[in-house]
Amino acid sequence: MTRPAPGGSRTGAPLDIDPELAGARSLRSGALAVTLLVALIALALISAGSGQLHVPPLEVFGSIMHRLGLDIGPMPGHANGESALWNIRFPRVAMALVIGAALAAAGLLMQAIFGNPLAEPGVVGVSGGAALGASATIVFGWAFLGEWTVAVTAFVGGLAATLIVYAMSRANGRTEVITLVLTGIAVNAVTGAGLAFLTFLGDTAAREQIVFWQLGSLNGSRWQQFGIVLPLVLVGLVVAFVVAKQLDLLSLGEKSARHLGVNVEGLRILVILVVALLVGASVAFAGIIAFVGLVIPHLMRMIIGPAHLPLLVVSTLGGAVLLLGADLVARTAVPLADLPIGMLTSLVGGPFFFWLLRRTRRSSGGWG
C-alpha cells in the first residue's frame, strides 16, 4: 500500500515510498527520457536541414559524422550545404537546445522552492531586469564591450533584479515565499515602467530593436555565443542535479525539511542564484522567451510524478525539444521571414497556463 510521506508534496502527488510504485515510476521516467532524446535527435536533424536551402536529414547526419572523422552517410549535395549547416544552422540548433533546457530547469527549480506549479522564472525579476539592461544599452548606444554589450548588460540586469528581490524580501535572517513573490511583482512593475520610459526615449530603430528583443529570437546565433552560454548553463544544471534530493525533502514542507537536516534558507538562496544564472544566460542572447519554464516542468510532473532528479532529466530534454520545435516553426512558417520565437511559446503557454489555473482552482476548492 502506498504511504505518503508526512505533509505530502506541495508541487505534485505525495512522495511515494511503495517499492512497486517507485519502480513503475522509474520505468516510466526512463521510457520518457529515451523518447524525448530520440525526438530531440530527430528534430535537430530536421531543423538543421530546413530553410531556404533544404538539406535532407541523412545528409545532415552524414555531415556531422564526417566532421567526427567517420565515413558514414552522404555529404550535402549542394555546394553551399556544408557552409550553411556549420555556420548558420548548427549554431542556432545548439543554442535552442541549451536555452530550452536552461529555461525548463529554471522553471522546475522555481516551482520547487515556491511549492507551486504556477511559479515561473519571471517571478524573481530575472526577465524584467534583463529587458531593462538590454533596452538601456540599445537606447543609449552603449558599446563598451562591442557586439557583446547588449548580452552582458542583459545578464547583469537580470542578476541585479534577482538580488534586489531577494534582499528586499529577506527579514530576520529568513525569506518568506509570499514576501518574495510580492517583492518580485513590485520589482517587475518598476522594470516595466523603466522599459516603457526607455521605449519612449528611443528613436524608431531603437524601439523596433527593443520590441524584437522582448519577443525573443535565435536569429543570428553563432558558435561564439554558444561557447559563452554553454558553460554557464552547465554550471547551473550541475548545481540543480546536486540539490535535487534536497528539493524532494523541501516538498514535504519547510518544518519537515529542517528536521531532516536541510538548510532551507541556504537552499533557497542557492536555487534563486542558479535560476538567475540559467535565465540570465539564456535571455542575454535570445531575448525573453516565455512559458517554457512553466509548461514543461508541470507537464513532465503530470507524467512521471514529483521526484526531482528524474523530473529534472526529462524537463531539460522536454525544454530542448519544445524550443527547438518552436524555432523550427519560427523559421519555416512564413517564407522569407523569421517569426519571434517568444510569440510562439506564448501561444502554446498562454492557453496551457489558463487550463492549469482552472485545474488548480478546482482541485483546491477555490483560492480563498
Rank of each mutant, 00 (worst) to 15 (best):
R10D: 07
P14T: 07
D16Y: 09
P19W: 08
G23T: 04
G23Q: 01
R25V: 04
L37I: 03
V38H: 06
A44I: 12
H54Q: 06
G62Q: 04
I64P: 01
L70W: 13
P76T: 12
G77W: 03
A79Y: 04
A84Y: 13
R89Y: 03
A94W: 02
V98L: 15
V98F: 07
A101I: 01
A102N: 08
A104Q: 03
A105P: 10
A112G: 15
A112H: 11
G115W: 06
P117L: 02
A119N: 11
A119F: 02
A119G: 06
V123Q: 11
L132Y: 00
G133W: 12
V139H: 04
F140E: 03
W142M: 09
F144H: 13
G146T: 01
W148N: 14
T149A: 08
I164D: 11
V165K: 07
V165F: 09
R170Q: 13
A171T: 05
N172R: 15
I185L: 14
T199Q: 14
F200Q: 10
L201E: 09
G202C: 03
V211T: 15
Q214H: 07
N219Y: 14
S221K: 12
W223R: 03
V229P: 00
P231K: 07
L234Y: 02
V235F: 13
V238N: 01
V239S: 10
F241P: 09
L247D: 00
D248T: 06
L250K: 00
L250C: 02
G253D: 14
G266C: 14
L267D: 06
L267E: 05
I269K: 14
I272H: 07
V274Q: 08
A276L: 08
A276C: 11
L277S: 03
G280F: 08
A284D: 03
I289P: 02
F291D: 01
G293Y: 12
L294F: 08
V295G: 04
I296W: 11
I296G: 00
P297Q: 12
H298E: 00
H298A: 04
R301G: 10
I304M: 06
L309E: 04
P310Y: 01
V313C: 03
V314D: 07
L328T: 15
A330I: 13
R331D: 00
T332F: 08
A333D: 07
I341V: 15
G350Y: 08
G350K: 05
F353W: 12
F353P: 07
F354L: 15
L357Q: 10
R359V: 02
R359P: 05
G365R: 02
G366Y: 05
